[in-house]
Each structure stands twice: as C-alpha cells, then as structure tokens.
Computed example of a mutant assay.
Amino acid sequence: MHEDDQTMTEEPGNGTLEREAQEWLLRLTSGRATSADADALRRWCSRSSAHAQAFAEANLLWEGLGPVAQGMAKSSALAQAKSARMPALRRRAFLGGSMAASIVAAGYLVARPPLNAWPSAYELAADYRTKIGERQRIAIENGVSIDLNTRTSLNVRHQGDEQRVELISGEAAITVAQTLSRRLTVSSAGGLIHGSDAQFDVRCDGSRTTVTCHRGSVGIDYSGQSVSLGEGRQISYADGGFGSERMIDATVVMAWREGHLVFRGTPLSEVVEEINRYRSGRIVLMNEALGKRRVEARIPLDHVDDLIALVREAYGARVTSLPGGVLILS
C-alpha cells in the first residue's frame, strides 16, 4: 500500500480509517517494508488526529491479535480480494469491556496462541502474572524465592512432599536454600528442573526453554533425557531434545533482577528483540546491515528506549516515530 493510493478528497469514516490502519500494520510487519513505506506511513498518520488514533489503536489490537493478523496477511486471498481483508473492529468494541468476550467468541483466545505474542487464557488465569515492564518477587516457602520478569505467568502447586512451580511463559529467577521441607520442581514446556542450594534462571519462549545456572547445580529432565547443569552453564531444550551446553556469564543473564539489561557484543537485531519484551508497541528494525552491528550496553529497564538514542548516536541510524509506541530503525 502506498500513500498516494490512499489520497481522499474528504475525511474517511471510522471504518475506512481502521481498515487502512490495519493494512499499514500488515505491511509494516510483513518483512518487506522499506524506509519509503515508513515515511509514507508517517505522512498518513499526520493527516489528522483521527488517522494517528486509528493507527495507535490498530497497533494495540495487533499486540493482542498479532498472530491471527499475520496469518491473514500470508493468505493469498488477503492480497487478491477485498473480502479477505482483516475485518475492521469498531472503536467501541476495542475500547469497551466487551472486547475480551468478543475475542473469545471469535475463537482467538486459544490455549497457547502462535508465537506466544499475546496472553493465553491459561496465562491470564495464572497464580502470578506480570505485565509489560513489570517485575515481581514472591516467596512461596521458607528457603524458596522467585523473581518474575516482564510478561511472565507462573503457577504454584503443592503435591505431597513436592513443591511444584509451573512456568507457563516468560522468565523466572529461582533461589533455593539447601534445606527444604519439600522438594522443589520447576516445570516448563514439558521439562522438569530441580535443584537445592542453588540459584538459576528459567526462560520459556513458547516451546523452547532456556536454563541458566548461577550458583550450585540443577538437574533437568526432558523427553526421557537428563542433564546436570553446573554453575555458569546454560542449556536450552525444545522439540524433544537438548541443545549444546555452553558457558555463560549468569550475572549478565540475570541482570534484569537488578533492573538492567546488559549486552556484550550482542547483534543489534537480538538487542531489539529483547528490548521489545519490556515495552508497549514495538521497535521495528528495517536495516539488515544495521541489525548485525554489535552492541555493548547496560540499559536501565525503566529507560529501555535509551537504546534508540544509542543506536542513533553510535551508528547514525534513522529513527521514525509512529503512534502506538512504534519506532522504526533504518
């Protein structure tokens, strides 16, 4: 979609603006967007406050229904027929309290949404849940404390002489004393993690779980296999198998507990992906060469957009700001 194609002689109705805003988001997240598209979108948003508001609301909706919209974007019907376009949702449905009911009725609120891009019903019903940018510390028993990172859902269960923690999604740092009244087991994506007198980090991204041992040692059982992870080691498992065990600076992995993100020679593309976990809206990287640049930085969690100033000043990147917390780096 090009801006010139959207020229109108009069202010379009809400339905038209909503549809156009959704089409812009489909373009922006298609992987084929260019800097010219970003400029055209910025001009479209600046036409009126209604245009800017429509894009901001579409972006918030995309945060919740992104995988559904992406699936529609990939269908040939979307590209070839108006009838297959994403249906416009009225503002009153989006902003009103009936939105959740509308989503459920439409069948969008499935047990585990694709790409885990929005909270599932199971996540929303968790014993403990943190929102975007939120952290929480809980003590579930004498000798066990858990720090929850951003966008994390977790359940706590007592099963006989075992204390079971279920990490549904997100990231948790767990500290376990040597002497416990009952054994602690952490379950995540089909695997079981256990340890005593240890401190470790568990991160669950969909079907993939990464375990980092900061102190002591932890055991991991997954798909009929078992590994023992020592201090300063990290391993991931997914799709029925373990990845390669590697040495890691656990203080970097767990720096979020102290309110910082630390990057040491990390490609900018990975930094952007990580930063997006901690902010509303999204940062979109549209320059492949820029994405390969290595980043050395320590960024406060309450100022994650400091990354933007860093990239602009250090690499001369161009930054385009759009409604709804969308920032485009090119």
Rank of each mutant, 00 (worst) to 15 (best):
F55N: 05
P67E: 09
A69E: 06
Q80H: 13
L89A: 02
L60W: 11
W62T: 12
L60D: 13
N59V: 13
P87Q: 00
R90M: 14
A84I: 04
G64D: 14
F55C: 07
M72T: 10
M86P: 01
S76C: 04
K82M: 02
P67K: 05
K82L: 06
R92C: 13
L89N: 01
W62H: 05
A81Y: 12
P67Q: 01
A81C: 06
A58R: 00
Q70G: 13
F94G: 07
L65S: 11
K82G: 01
A73I: 11
V68F: 12
M86E: 00
R91P: 15
K74N: 09
L61C: 09
G71S: 12
L78W: 07
P67N: 04
G71C: 10
A88D: 03
A69T: 11
F94Y: 14
R85S: 03
R90F: 13
A69D: 08
S75D: 10
A81P: 04
R85I: 04
A84G: 03
A77C: 07
G66W: 06
S83A: 08
A88N: 02
K74W: 06
E57F: 04
A93W: 15
R90P: 08
A69P: 01
G64Y: 09
R91A: 15
R92F: 15
R91E: 11
G66E: 09
E63W: 01
W62L: 12
L60H: 11
V68D: 06
S75I: 06
A73M: 13
A77E: 12
